[in-house]
């Protein structure tokens, strides 16, 4: 780099750039927070949805599945599983694990109660209704 471009100038670009773009990021975040209620339908977050999210977390579902595309890629996307399979199928599926089919990927048995299964479905139903800009591309997730 040329001698006229000094270290002090480089340092100033760093500090100025970092501060400016972090403030811009905060501004965009503020705007996003204003817009989100219309997109996440938080009025539909019932106690059951809250409990369902807790079950989702404490069984580390994200360690195999994706949810809205984030997580592990070992098992199907679940952000739209409610639309793809429906509530009764989800409950029956979780209750029936593991399949024990030799050589196939296995999901653990979590021994969830019927209430807990309902909570799980409520959480997945709420998730499927979030406005995700039409993602995933199709029903297969």
């Amino acid at each position: 780099m040329s001698e006229t471009f000094t270290k002090a100038m480089a340092r100033n670009i760093f500090y100025g750039g970092a501060v400016f773009f972090f403030l811009l990021f905060l501004g965009l975040t503020f705007d996003t927070m204003q817009t989100l209620p219309k997109r996440d339908h938080r009025e539909n977050i019932t106690d059951s949805v809250v409990r369902g999210k807790h079950i989702w977390e404490t069984r580390d579902c994200i360690g195999c599945h994706t949810l809205l595309g984030e997580g592990a890629y070992f098992a199907p996307e679940l952000g739209n599983v409610y639309t793809r399979r429906g509530g009764p199928f989800i409950k029956a599926w979780i209750a029936a694990q593991p399949t024990g089919a030799p050589g196939r990927r296995q999901m653990p048995q979590f021994n969830l109660t019927d209430q807990e299964l309902d909570d799980m479905v409520a959480f997945l139903k709420w998730t499927s209704e979030v406005n995700t800009n039409k993602w995933p591309p199709n029903i297969e997730g």
Partner: peptide, 27 residues
Amino acid sequence: KWLYIIIAMTLITGIIGTGHHYFWIGT
């Protein structure tokens, strides 16, 4: 001097670059 200019570009692009995670999660 190189270090400063590299990390300047890192934060100038990377902070708002967080947005590439905000495409499909309800944002």
